[in-house]
Write a protein that binds this DNA or RNA. Structure first.
Length: 1169
RNA sequence: GGUCACGUGGCGGAAUUGGUAUACGCGUACGUCUCAGAAGCGUAUCCCGUAAGGGUUGGGGGUUCGAGUCCCCCCGUGACCACCA
């Protein structure tokens, strides 16, 4: 190849097809964009939201964020950073599964096909992703770690199962998180959501709510993103206050953010679902009505119930009274649908005077309204602002709102001296009422004679500086409403006229004109009604009367023995999906052990393959595969199999009285029921004889009942016993290493021969029975069993025996099998906690004979795999860990994460939550995953709608790349409008950027390598552009960056030639946007290394500085012309030049100049009269 | 109903801290090149007016020497939330 100094080789016409694919292959071969795990280099981790590879293929909206971040990533590389810009596939999800249902093709195959298409398409755009780190959430090697993280949540108690009513989409057959329900409909398909009860996996994100809120202060997210997250978390502080119930032990706990209004409580409301309701119901006088009401509420759908426009309904629990802890007042208790069960405590204290919802409810049901707060405002601005150094002088006063006699206008008074724009006000003299004082003031100040007092609007306290009297005034106003009946008016004194003007204004004008806090409040009261929800002065509030409400919140809470608490709107995350195409939740449900996590070494729990799957008319779900998937072994049971040393059996039940237990066991054993009488009799060890029972400890009634029972079931007992032993012994034969048995002597005659026949070698016998004498028992057992009497123990139910038993059992692990009330229940009490106690049935899984454990069939939601994927990029092939801590140390946190606004509340919050959890486990180095978060706007179809296959308005990038090339596509996507705003696609406009590229290509012909002296204009243009492009890229103002490049080109084209250095810099600035064509031109100039590895041009301010500035000349703010002056010409000089400027002179004739404003290098404004 | 954005030519959109409104691009018109067309190149392109000049950033008001930009009211569009006590 040529050296840099050699003559540039000639180029043909620009042909994007020749240029683009060739360079893409070249970069791939040279691994130009692969990140290196080299801790010595400064790193940059740029991230985009990895796509969901839908069957529709890529449309032109997808790549905009990729290209935007690509521009930044490429610039960072040129700035010398070791850049990690990775991509992968968020490939689990409903559309793929639905597609599988429709076509019968397995989701895994569909996913493979779709990712292949997406990969090809993205690669054809020339985004500088590091493809060697590609990940896929549906790859078992990936979701193994998603499952692993879930197990860590489980271990820490942050994953739990909860029976709950869930939002169920009847079309998608899927449980939805609250976040996925939009206006009561399924987020994805719009079907109205139903309620169903189901056990669901939950993740306790609420445990992190406070930190998720607080730590937003530490990251560089766009403000609107932070605001949205904060709103979603919904932190609010308030008090939990307990209302005792009259003559009852229960208490109602309420949450309120306004404990200061406690004295205004006139009733208490429970949510219809509140747990207390059912226990109160028994003693409610109107029980039937209440039950009926609750039924009605439950019937209503969520859409109906949460419709804020809907009228609130409720019903009183008659006969129940709550006691207000602050004043021991009894108030009624209601249930109502406007109270939400799952926020706060599910109960509220109602303060109708100061809460709009309570107010509406109280008005509807005739409940009392008691005002306890009066507005208090303080003037902080203007000449009336309170002067802190002066004391307050208190005074009672009136604010008069006066209506015009014929129009909808109100009288305002504009005081000239102190810029007061308000209503007529005045102090109350002597024993005047607001009505009389108001009428007097109206007459004195305005002359109107027909003011008729209508009503008091409310009270209002105000602090301000009284300019006329030169004191701080603390006024206690009554707002009085007057109407004029006519316009008759007396003459007003000259003094009053001097003080103020009187004007009539429409309601809108009043609101706009009022310029004092108290006047604005008064008007607000008048227009909005009596429910005052603001802060103010406490009245009618016991010892708190006269205090300010805001500062009394905590003290009132204390007085009421309440607690100050923080609550959140955020709910725990419903983590279960009843779908096939998601990560299986890695746990096993064992009858014996309950929920058992799959051991980490056994991960991943893979999805079952859907075999021979044929689509049906109705569209059967791949969930069918799960039916073959559920039976498994319990890992716990397998693990324990090697451990048991002792077996404890108690056969009390066999002879005893628990027929039900045996009967159910019989069925499970599957043998007893088929035994005939004849067979039973033929068995040597079985004595068929009537059931005997001892009745000496029973009451006559019990004894009679027992006799009856024996008469009915006696024969079945015998059969059952037989069957049990047969089956039992069969199982026992498989026990190899047990050492100890506990038997009941009562059953010894049947049990011991059977045990013996099994060939077991028990070393100890524990006889556990209290019916027979010790001697008889031990002797018989030992004899039958053939063991030494010293190895036998005998117990009764006394406490001493229990202790002895514990001693024998010692530290060894014990598997127990026991029945009956003497056996199982008793042993359960006495066994140390860690030992495992089993019922007879349970012995089967313990022995791993045919363990009946079932796999969890719920899968994880889509959000799971995307909650940690960025971590995997740091070390995507690791098989030991989700990522090597050293690599995480180097690469994380993500320096810049760009994504859609639609993901700010869900994905962003969820992944921050996972990250914080991993941080707490010491597995990631930072507490926040993303240092910086920006967002892009969606690309819409030409009509402004979203692009979707169903609407048929999708533009495929393939055809654009085919006709104009990837570089043109990229430039257009960046140039079309502001990056963060939604914008409609317009294919016609691509012509402009394509022309631009062609002109850059043509400019290559003018490149000269000669040593001619650099033209200053050229350097100036280039350096101005360097600055503009550099700054704009950082701020994601890609559209203006490109426009400045176009401006530069327009300028440079005018010259006969361009220096190679300048041209190269232009190419470098353009390279992040149009990587292929710039690489081609760069190479054609003899450069050996890639333009994308070249150093980003450095802005030289001295070269960009202009020597002259255009100075605008304004006369009275109007532009009258401009002149050119040297940069940094002195103000005085500019002023002089401007006044002598002929165009300006024309406008100055006959006028006198009062003022001249000079803005250096910009303008001179001459103000004339 | 609440919160937050936003409103500029025929169209997408520019406009540092308030300082030449309509940059850049599309489209359109005319010209040039051509046998012709396409592409290219050149000129023009907010409105009224021949011009001087005047008007214009959804509407109205305010602050300012000066407002697309700051403040208030109204209208409209979009996003998110929606009885959160």
């Amino acid at each position: 190849m040529n050296k840099k100094s050699s003559q540039p080789k000639p180029l043909g016409a620009y042909d994007h097809k020749k240029v683009e694919v060739a360079w893409q292959k070249h970069w791939s071969k040279k691994k130009t964009f692969q990140a290196q795990d080299d801790p010595k280099k400064k790193k940059f981790f740029g991230l985009i939201e990895f796509p969901y590879p839908s069957g529709d293929g890529l449309h032109v909206g997808h790549p905009r964020p990729y290209i935007g971040m690509d521009v930044i990533a490429r610039k960072r590389r040129m700035q010398g950073y070791n850049v990690l810009y990775p991509i992968g596939w968020d490939a689990f999800g409903l559309p793929t599964e639905n597609y599988a249902i429709k076509t019968g093709i397995q989701p895994s195959i569909v996913t493979k096909k779709n990712t292949d298409t997406f990969r090809r398409q993205i690669q054809s755009i020339g985004v500088s992703f590091d493809w060697s780190r590609e990940i896929n959430t549906t790859d078992p090697a990936y979701y193994r770690w998603t499952q692993w993280i879930f197990l860590q949540f489980l271990k820490k108690g942050l994953a739990y199962k909860k029976k709950m009513t869930i939002n169920w989409c009847p079309k998608d057959l899927i449980g939805l998180a609250n976040e996925e329900v939009v206006n009561g409909c399924c987020e994805r398909c719009g079907t109205p959501v139903e309620k169903r009860t189901k056990e669901q996996w939950m993740l306790a994100i609420t445990k992190y709510a406070d930190r998720l809120d607080k730590d937003l202060d530490t990251v560089d997210f766009l403000d609107r993103i932070k605001t949205q997250q904060r709103n979603w978390i919904g932190k609010s502080e308030g008090a939990e206050i307990r209302f005792a119930l009259k003559d009852r032990s229960e208490k109602i706990e309420v949450f309120t953010t306004r404990p200061d209004t406690l004295y205004g409580v006139t009733y208490v409301v429970l949510a219809p679902e509140h747990s207390l309701v059912s226990s109160l119901l028994a003693s409610v006088e109107n029980k039937a009505e209440v039950e009926n009401y609750i039924g009605e509420v439950k019937k209503a759908t969520d859409i109906e119930r949460t419709d804020a426009k809907k009228e609130k309904t409720g019903i009183e629990l008659k006969g129940i009274k709550a006691i207000n802890p602050i004043n021991q007042e009894e108030v009624p208790v209601w249930i109502a649908d406007y109270v939400l069960a799952d926020y706060g405590t599910g109960a509220v204290m109602a303060v109708p005077a100061h809460d709009e919802r309570d107010h509406a409810f109280a008005k509807k049901y005739g409940l009392p309204v008691r005002a306890v707060i009066e507005s208090l405002s303080s003037q902080t601005e203007g000449p009336d602002a309170v002067k802190p150094e002066l004391p307050f002088v208190e005074r009672r006063a009136v604010i008069c709102i006066i209506k015009h006699w014929s129009e909808d206008k109100y009288l305002m008074s504009f005081y000239k001296a102190n810029d007061w724009k308000g209503f007529i006000v005045g102090g109350l003299e002597g024993d005047e009422t607001p009505a009389s004082a108001g009428a007097r003031e109206i007459h004195e100040e305005t002359g109107y004679t027909s003011a008729r007092f209508v009503r008091n609007i409310g009270k209002l306290h105000s602090k301000f500086y009284h300019q006329v009297k030169s004191v701080n005034r603390f006024a206690h106003f009554e707002i009085a409403y007057f109407e004029l009946t006519d316009g008759k008016r007396d003459e007003v004194s000259e003094e009053e006229k001097k003080l103020h003007d009187v004007v009539w204004l429409s309601p809108q004008e009043v609101a706009a004109a009022a310029n004092r806090a108290d006047i604005i409040r008064a008007w607000d009261f008048f227009t909005r009604g009596t429910c005052y929800t603001g802060e103010g002065l406490l009245v009618d509030s016991g010892s708190f009367t006269g205090k300010e409400s805001e500062s009394s919140k905590k003290t009132i809470t204390e007085s009421a023995k309440g607690r100050w608490v923080t609550t959140f709107k955020l709910r725990d995350w419903i983590f279960s999906r009843q779908r096939y195409w998601g990560e299986p939740i890695p746990v096993v449900h064992c009858d014996l052990c309950g929920i058992v996590p799959v051991p980490e070494k056994d991960l991943p729990v893979k999805l079952p393959t859907v075999k021979n799957y044929k689509p049906t008319e109705t569209g059967e779900s791949p969930l069918a595969a799960i039916s073959k998937w559920v039976n498994t072994t319990c890992p716990n049971c397998i693990a324990n199999k090697k451990k048991p040393k002792y077996l404890i059996f108690d056969f009390d039940g066999v002879l005893g009285d628990t027929w039900d237990v045996m009967n159910s066991s019989k069925v499970k054993m599957g043998v007893a029921s088929s035994i005939e009488d004849a067979q039973v009799s033929s068995l040597a060890h079985f004595e068929k004889k009537p059931m005997e029972t001892r009745t000496e400890n029973m009451t006559p009634e019990e004894a009679a009942k027992r006799q009856q029972w024996i008469a009915t079931f006696g024969r079945h007992m015998a059969e059952t016993k037989f069957g049990l032993f047969q089956g039992f012994v069969k199982e026992l034969k498989k026990i190899k290493n047990a050492k100890l048995a506990v038997v009941s002597a009562g059953s010894a005659q049947y049990v011991l021969p059977a045990l013996k026949k099994s060939g077991l070698k028990f070393t100890h016998i524990l006889a556990y029975e209290d019916h027979h004498s010790k001697e008889e028992k031990v002797e018989k057992v030992c004899k039958d069993w053939g063991i030494d009497v010293t190895d036998a123990y005998y117990f009764t139910d006394t406490k001493a025996d229990v202790l002895e038993l514990e001693g024998i059992m010692n530290k060894d692990k014990i598997i127990g099998c026991a029945w009956g009330y003497h056996g199982f229940d008793r042993l359960k009490e006495i066994l140390p906690e860690k030992q495992i106690l089993l019922k007879f049935n349970d012995i089967r899984p313990v022995l791993n004979l045919d363990c009946t454990a079932k796999r969890e069939t719920d899968t994880m939601p889509n959000w799971a795999g995307s909650s940690w994927y960025y971590l995997r990029y740091a070390d995507p092939k690791n098989t030991k860990m989700f990522a090597d801590p050293k690599k995480l140390d180097y690469w994380t946190p993500v320096d810049w994460y760009n994504g859609g606004m639609e993901h700010t509340t869900l994905h962003l919050l969820y992944s921050r939550f996972w990250h914080k959890f991993l941080f707490d486990l010491g597995l990631v180095p930072t507490s926040e995953p993303y240092q910086k978060r920006t967002s892009h706007g969606l690309i819409l179809a030409a009509g402004g709608e979203k692009m979707s296959k169903s609407k048929g308005n999708v533009i495929n990038p393939d055809s654009i790349i085919e006709t104009v090339g990837a570089d043109s596509l990229r430039l257009y996507e960046m140039f079309m409008g502001p990056f963060d705003q939604p914008i409609a696609w317009n294919t016609d406009n691509i012509a402009g950027v394509r022309r631009f590229i062609e002109r850059v290509w043509k400019l290559r012909e003018k490149v000269v390598t000669s040593e001619t002296k650099p033209g200053t204009t050229e350097a100036k243009i280039i350096h101005k552009t360097i600055k503009k492009v550099s700054d704009d890229i950082e701020a994601m103002r890609f559209n203006t960056a490109i426009s400045s490049l176009m401006i530069a080109l327009n300028e440079l084209e005018k010259n006969e030639s361009i220096r190679q250095g300048s041209y190269e810099m232009l190419l470098q600035l353009l390279a992040p946007f149009a990587p292929h064509v710039t690489e081609e031109l760069w190479s054609s100039l003899g450069n050996k290394d890639s333009i994308h590895a070249s150093p980003w041009p450095v802005y030289d301010p001295t070269l960009a500085v202009e020597s002259e500035a255009t100075i605008m000349v304004q006369v009275n703010g109007k532009i009258r012309g401009s002149f050119v002056a040297a940069v940094d010409t002195a103000r005085e000089e500019l002023e002089r030049l401007a006044q002598e400027y002929p165009e300006a002179k024309k406008w100055l004739e006959g006028k006198s100049v009062t003022k001249v404003i000079v803005v250096p290098n910009k303008l001179v404004n001459i103000v004339v009269v």
